[in-house]
Amino acid sequence: MLLALLRRFGQMIFVMFGISVLVFLIFFVTPGADPAARIAGRNASPETLEAVRKSFGFDQPVWVQYLTMMKKLFVTQDLTSFVNRGWKVVPAVLDTIPVTLSLVIGAAILWVVFGMLVGLIAAATRGSWIDKLLMALGLVGCAMPVYWLGEMMNLVSQSRYHDTWLFSWVPPLGYKNLSDDPRGWFLTLVIPWFTLAILYIGLYGRVLRANLIEAMQEDYIRTARAKGLSETRILLRHALRTSLISFVTLFGLDFGALVGGAALLTEVVFGLQGVGKLTYDALQNLDLPVIMTTVIYASFFVVLANALVDVVYILIDPRVRSA
């Protein structure tokens, strides 16, 4: 167990190192990349360029620059933005993390619960109109772009029907801190949660249904029937457990990516200052320290989520334990 944890940790360090080097190299060593020229702006005089180069330390060898940046990021944590000088990056990123985590964890709970319900009901009623309806709705859910759905939700709940009983509770866009205003936190996030979750409910429901139907063809399901168990029990106790493997795998990948910034579109539409939004803004003006920090943070979550998935595998399937 300890060995497995250590191996995971090593893997995480390796992934984070690789990504940071890659981002750094793209920024500094790709042809035509001159960070000093970018920072100094258009039509800057050679003297200004030289001054910028000196003051940002771009005149040092690349590997020294890399190490300096890593030291500022991890050890002294006083890395500052290239664009807004003096703006400390690490606290800025730390501020956005609760926003993204609130959004993604809430949505994840919704999509796991409803995705599982959809998959189970559809598999249990396979071939019936309920199954067909659920799968059609799932496909609609998968097909709706999240920015469009989000804007539609805003249009309906913030503007068109805001004055009706149905949506009068919806607060204006923006994020409220859980510790300051739990009720406000919840109310502002309800619609973003559903918007983000709908895509995944459809996807996960379809995946689980396919896996359940495959599992129901297995020999051990026939044995379970021969034992005289009810169909519900067979589905929930015998078929579901082995069908959860791909569900969990998908969850690890999606959850990690979303926490790492892939919830950008939802964040933008609902005015949530999350990690995705921060990264996006940093990319707009090529603010390397911010990009570097969010990317490192994202890779940490992707690896962490996958490590958790491995633990869940062990819980689900005893065959993994002895392997």
Partner: peptide, 15 residues
């Protein structure tokens, strides 16, 4: 009535 099937490798739920 009880039944025993051909392949014991796959006849029991693995989990």
């Amino acid at each position: 009535i009880a039944m025993i099937f051909q392949d014991p490798m796959t006849a029991m739920t693995p989990v």
